[in-house]
Design a protein around this nucleic acid. Structure first.
Length: 425
RNA sequence: GUGGCCGUAGCUCAGUCGGUUAGAGCGCCGGGUUGUGGUCCCGGAGGUCGGGGGUUCGACUCCCCUCGGUCACCCCA
């Protein structure tokens, strides 16, 4: 074979079967959980006006360096961008439609960041998430964080750690920022070159450095907890108490900071210990009490999280969880007469609600039976010249030791159903 | 964006010091069983060795560039 003419662009990939089915299954688990918790699906555009994302923070790589931006054919052209995350779009939608709070929504879908690809880091990646807008009740925080905890549990993951912290409110945040910046300036001689650059732009982010050199400085840095206002401290305490009452295991991580600038008060992260790479954060979120207002809406508190589907699946592989779903094909129709029976029988069985597949190209019985086996079907329906002449079909139990018998075409659905529900014949 | 490593059939990999027609397992197709899968046996298709350039009598092998992947930083899910 020659070289393929095209391949998927860097950082993107085709999700082929059976991985695609497993992925869809994961999203379904999340959707069920969110639906049952009173969250409703929001489908927002995959691209937005650039300004929507610029509100995420001017000194943030996601917005400044990693955006896929483009102009449309309007006159004048609109400056648009593929969404690098989903919270901004949700807040834009809230500001635009003014739904009655609290507005609880969930979502799933692709997002785009122009980064150097790596395992668990793609230019097109998928997240599932929830947002609760219009309340700052700490119990809303508990509900959101708890939903995340239960989701990982539902997947059968055991090696996910929950880290939480409070970043304070508009009152306490500036004081902490100033203290942290002063401290870091004081010890700038010990910081790595890159951290010095980060220090100028966003002192908080220095705490996220992974370089060995920075660790001693980070370890002794002032912590937000000491700067929380009374209200913020109380809020944080209520969140922790709520998580305790759910028996949700968490670690207070006083130096946990989040990538996006809009976070206030409650912040949290889910870390997969089964992943021994740098990309081991499988989910994260927090409160963003100012974002809706930033986007021109009324002052509206909000909290939510986003969980990375790609990384979760990687982590599931690593700890052998959520292996996937059963094959949907229950019946395989084999036609070694002229093939016309298979057309009709497949339709009839499918209309009866069964999962049915078949072979094409008039292949040999052996070949078709092999296909039937590979399909995972429990039952094979066989039509040859004999059956066709007699108006019957042979129903074969494909399980080890299973037998077969001929039934009238009209009794086929009943016979197949009986086999599928009745166990080995 | 910076640096390291990797790139051989659809997949996972072997390929000696640069030396003739590049191999295996799995998968796929066909046959053994002219109506029966999962086991077994036989056979077959499938690769210009990621792409381009260079060194050399000769390159899968060495060098450069490039594309892709991967690891660390960065960023973050």
């Amino acid at each position: 074979m020659a070289q393929p003419l095209f391949r998927a662009p860097a950082g993107t990939r085709d999700i082929l079967p059976p991985a695609s089915a497993r992925r869809r299954g994961l999203v379904r688990v999340f959707a069920d959980l969110a639906d049952r918790s009173g969250f409703s699906l929001l489908e927002s555009p995959i691209f937005e006006e650039l300004g929507v994302f610029q509100r995420l923070g001017a000194n943030n790589d996601v917005v400044t360096k990693e955006l896929f931006e483009f102009f449309d054919k309007g006159d004048p052209p609109r400056h648009l961008a593929l969404r690098p995350e989903l919270t901004a779009g949700v807040c834009r939608a809230f500001a635009e439609h003014r739904p009655t709070p609290p507005w609880k929504i969930w979502y799933s879908g692709p997002q785009f960041r122009y980064e150097r690809p790596q395992a668990g880091r793609y230019r097109q990646f998928e997240q599932v998430g929830v947002e609760t807008l219009g309340t700052d009740d700490p119990h809303a925080d508990v509900e959101v964080v708890g939903l995340g905890v239960r989701f990982y549990e539902a997947l059968g993951m055991r090696q996910v750690r929950l880290l939480i912290n409070s970043l304070g409110d508009s009152e306490s945040r500036p004081a902490y920022n100033a203290a942290l910046a002063a401290y870091l300036q004081d010890r700038r001689g010990e910081l790595s070159e890159q951290s010095l650059v980060t220090l100028e732009r966003n002192p908080l982010r220095v705490l996220d450095s992974k370089r060995e050199q920075d660790q001693p400085v980070i370890a002794e840095a002032p912590v937000m907890a000491d700067f929380l206002s009374g209200a913020s401290a109380e809020h944080f305490a209520a969140v922790r108490a709520g998580l305790d009452s759910l028996d949700a295991v968490y670690e207070v991580s006083p130096r946990l900071v989040r990538g996006l600038d809009y976070y206030t008060r409650t912040t949290f992260e889910f870390v997969a210990d089964a992943l021994d790479t740098a990309q081991n954060a499988v989910g994260g979120g927090g409160r963003y009490d100012g974002l809706v207002e930033e986007l021109g809406g009324p002052p509206t508190p909000g909290i939510g999280f986003a969980l990375g589907v790609d990384r979760i699946l990687l982590a599931c592989d690593a700890e052998d969880a959520f292996s996937g779903t059963a094959p949907p094909v229950e019946v395989f129709v084999v036609d070694v007469a002229d093939g016309r029976s298979a057309v009709v029988l497949c339709d009839r069985l499918r209309q009866a609600g069964l999962g049915v597949d078949r072979a094409f190209d008039g292949r040999s019985m052996k070949a078709q039976m092999k296909r039937a086996d590979r399909s995972g079907a429990t039952v094979a329906v066989i039509v040859g010249p004999d059956e066709q002449a007699a108006g019957t079909a042979t129903v074969r139990d494909m399980r080890p030791g299973g037998g077969q018998r001929q039934v009238a075409a009209d009794d086929l659905v009943a016979a197949v159903t009986e086999l599928l529900t009745g166990g080995v014949q």
